[in-house]
Design a binder for these strands. Structure first.
Lengths: 213, 213, 213, 213
DNA sequence: TATGAATGAGTTTTCATTCAT
DNA sequence: TATGAATGAAAACTCATTCAT
């Protein structure tokens, strides 16, 4: 689908588009290669070979190996943040069932992303394994998630459909942690789609009702 | 305090003890260095330098760099598994308050371990970043934790102090995920001891009572 | 003189020729270095330095140090085998003088090769000193020489110009041994070209007429 | 059998004898190890382990790894030289049959030595592969053999049972070369005792009668 | 512009030899 | 005296990055 360009902005030339496209191909290849072999084991040559270009061409599009990892991660973070935001606003839910439904939707959206184990691997393992800076970037996403979640909780507590004594920040922490940890556990080789669904269900149920009730 | 040796077992010679001790010093140094710089960035030379020995002396005690990482991880896994087991049996708790107290104890024991961020970093980041094999080892620990947790849940459900419709395995997954994820979130630089305590409390509360009640 | 390429086979590009040429330069340097310092004492760095390239460039052309030795030896073996074959066929000689002349020619051809002491050193000393595999390769050459020689002897015996009771295989062994041993003795520092000629003469004479007559 | 010591020379003490004995054991082990793995691949540790002593003890008896190789080689050279000398004198033979018998005896004695492939390997391959100095030592043996052989030839020529026009030095060279080369060819894996005997026979026959007659 | 060739910095590992017990 | 522990020098090899075509 052709992208529309605003008036006054000249459409990029063919060459520029080609360049953009190649850039994207390289990004995709890097994503695959990093996920398969890990950042350190992956060579720039591997990435280039997968795209079918010379190693040197790689450097016309990215500063360094580290640079492309950063870009891959940025993309993933952006995507995850969108999933958290999409069609959801902290004050959209006014009743418990509404909120519950909303949580279910968010959970499924995140699962959609995390079901691609490569995303989990790169975001949680490789990013942190390479560099404190990159780790910070990812942790920024977590902070964002925690804050968003806390906002939801505040809304629910204010409206009265969540516990009045809820420590919203700390609990948000716990919930985001649960998402995170579940995603990591999903790296275990033997988890199929069905199990994932049961897990989400159990997690959402736990979140709302706890073990007891 | 001198260690007692059983009759018939000759106490290790001075040289042997020295050797053991040096081995332990190297292990400790490796633990630190791996945590600080990451496995790939850390050189055998760094480890040796920290202990104050020559590079090649390292190889008198460990097969390879990979070998020592494995040993470090094995130690950590063992320690974590002990913490999970210590003084706890799945059927020890017969009432909800008892179980709650037990969970609190376990949570604190794990937090004690995880408060050393280096442990978290090595176990969760480095292990997985290096090798599929090592990742498996760590995941074995998680499986153990999940199974143990499920056993507790089964006990509680059978005794009637937990929900009758509890999907014990899936929920155990979610709970272990929560522990895991919280540990990782603990790597964020700005978390102090007090915050940790609040987090644990919120997590335990969430686990038992959920958001609602 | 420009090499002619058959129709349909595009002439190698300049870059390819350059690469071939560099490869050959490295081979030559390795040949020299191995002969001078011996395989074990020679470093890849020495070879690279002699060509005037960086150490790692070496690895763009050869798999490993062992690899290049193998290639050097293969070349030498091929050359020696050609010398044995060149313009000679086992049944070319029908009379004793003809055969005698043929032997003289072969002897001179081999001497031509062996006069380069580096060849002898690498083929007989280094190859065997490094690896059983390489030794096998060289011994394959000897076997070839023995078989070829035996074929000549058979021809001569059948035609009646050699002893009827000649044990052709065993004698071929002895003759090839003589060539081999003489080549090794040629490594002695004090042997000049003239002496070599006398040696060949004496050897050929011995071979045909023995000590007695 | 106890060795007799001349009057006035005090018999070595027990400790000294033990030391001598251990030294010999180390020499034997080195001989084996060098032959099996080659000088460069063999470690001092291997030698020590085979004797059952610590690596360090090795250095109480030999200066260095190189040193022990030298001693091993010296021993072998001495043994080979003895075989060449034993009960033979250049002028012992006065007739052709006598000389022929003498040659046969010498050939068998040398074969006895060379049938231990380890001797051949160490003397011809390892010695030359390590060091120019060691190679010289071995070549000294060859020179000795050549000179001795030439002396025999001179005697035979003077007495009239060998060709009058024999270039004794050059032919001696050829003959010693034949011995040498045959010994090397003996390293081929598929040569059994019987073949060896046929080879010797063929060589001696060739030496005396040539191909023709 | 795209490329493959070239590179050197960096790392793991080995092993002969010395030292302290 | 015998030993194992310690060592550092050396060496092969890899790979991200630059350069010349």
């Amino acid at each position: 689908m052709a992208v529309k360009y605003p008036a006054g902005v000249s459409q990029p030339s063919y060459a520029q588009r080609r360049k953009q496209q190649l850039r994207q191909e390289i990004l995709d290849a890097a994503f695959d290669v990093f996920a398969e072999r890990g950042y350190h084991d992956a060579g720039v040559a591997d990435i280039a070979a997968r795209v079918g270009i010379g190693h040197s061409t790689f450097y016309r599009h990215f500063e360094s190996k580290r640079d492309i990892l950063e870009q891959v991660i940025t993309t993933l973070i952006t995507r995850a943040a969108s999933a958290l935001n999409a069609d959801n606003a902290p004050d959209a839910a006014t009743t418990l069932p509404e909120y519950r439904a909303q949580v279910q939707r968010i959970a499924e959206a995140l699962d959609e992303i995390a079901s691609d184990l490569r995303v989990v691997r790169i975001l949680l393992i490789e990013a942190s394994g390479v560099d404190a800076d990159l780790q910070q970037r990812v942790f920024g996403l977590f902070d964002f998630a925690i804050n968003a979640t806390a906002a939801y909780f505040n809304n629910g507590r204010d409206r009265g459909y969540l516990r009045a004594d809820l420590d919203t920040t700390a609990t948000a922490h716990a919930v985001v942690g649960m998402i995170l940890g579940t995603a990591i556990l999903g790296l275990k080789p033997d988890i199929d789609t069905n199990t994932r669904r049961l897990l989400i269900q159990a997690a959402v149920r736990l979140m709302f009702d706890g073990l007891v009730d």
